[in-house]
């Protein structure tokens, strides 16, 4: 009897991670987060708890955000996975990544990869969330440093940026009394027009 109950020592899986085909043999009990971190060396996905509360391990599995500490690697067999390392495209940050930088949405950075991945999903589901929707939409992710205010602003920033990329010229600009600026004196915030805003994002300084 016992033999029939014994799980195989390892199982072969094939996954697409950040666009690359990866595969190998894993113990059936291997958690997806450990497969990513320990087998594929993608250590951007973090572990902050053991009860699926903190959300530091959020990745996208076939386009949906999941807590990778609560998914077995074998369950991901045949799936497409995106981790924080795969979010930037052609060297350009995703608007959510950019938003976290612009709005000081991180301090120690440990929750940040999960927080960013969850925020990307949130904006895919709801491109124009209210502040309340952002706060509730990120309930599965815990941050101990920021008090969340600048995370909310980061998501608002990204929503505006994604909206403008999609042609919505009137997408709202976030505002902050102490808006961050680049060290060269340019600021991504509160520009005179959306055109100025986009120029600044493209790295053009109006101070010359």
């Amino acid at each position: 009897m016992a033999d029939t109950m014994t799980a195989p020592a390892t199982m072969a899986i094939q996954v697409t991670v950040n666009g690359s085909n990866r595969g190998g043999n894993v113990e059936p009990r291997t958690l997806l987060v450990h497969y990513l971190r320990d087998h594929l060396n993608l250590t951007g996905t973090h572990v902050g708890c053991d009860t699926s509360q903190c959300g530091a391990c959020v990745v996208h599995l076939d386009g949906e955000s999941v807590k990778s500490c609560t998914v077995l690697a074998v369950q991901a067999n045949g799936s497409e996975i995106t981790t924080i390392e795969g979010l930037a495209k052609d060297g350009d940050y995703h608007p959510v990544q950019q938003g976290f930088w612009e709005m000081h949405g991180l301090q120690c950075g440990y929750c940040t990869p999960g927080m960013i991945m969850a925020s990307v999903s949130l904006l895919q589901r709801n491109p124009n969330p209210t502040e309340d929707e952002i706060r509730h939409g990120l309930e599965g992710n815990l941050c101990r440093c920021t008090g969340y205010q600048n995370i909310v602003k980061a998501v608002q920033y990204a929503a505006g940026q994604i909206g403008r990329d999609a042609g919505a010229a009137d997408a709202p600009l976030p505002h902050d009394a102490h808006r961050p600026i680049h060290h060269d004196g340019t600021t991504p915030h509160d520009p005179a027009s959306v055109d100025d805003w986009e120029d600044e994002l493209a790295g053009e300084s109006d101070e010359s």
């Binding site: 250590t43 930088w101 950075g109 680049h182």
Partner: peptide, 21 residues
């Protein structure tokens, strides 16, 4: 001045190096 943090580019890209990494 509210200068954006130079620490952030690696941290938002998953390129931080914490102990468990």
């Amino acid at each position: 001045q509210p200068i954006k943090r130079r620490e952030d580019p690696r941290l938002i890209a998953g390129a931080g190096a914490y102990l468990d990494d």
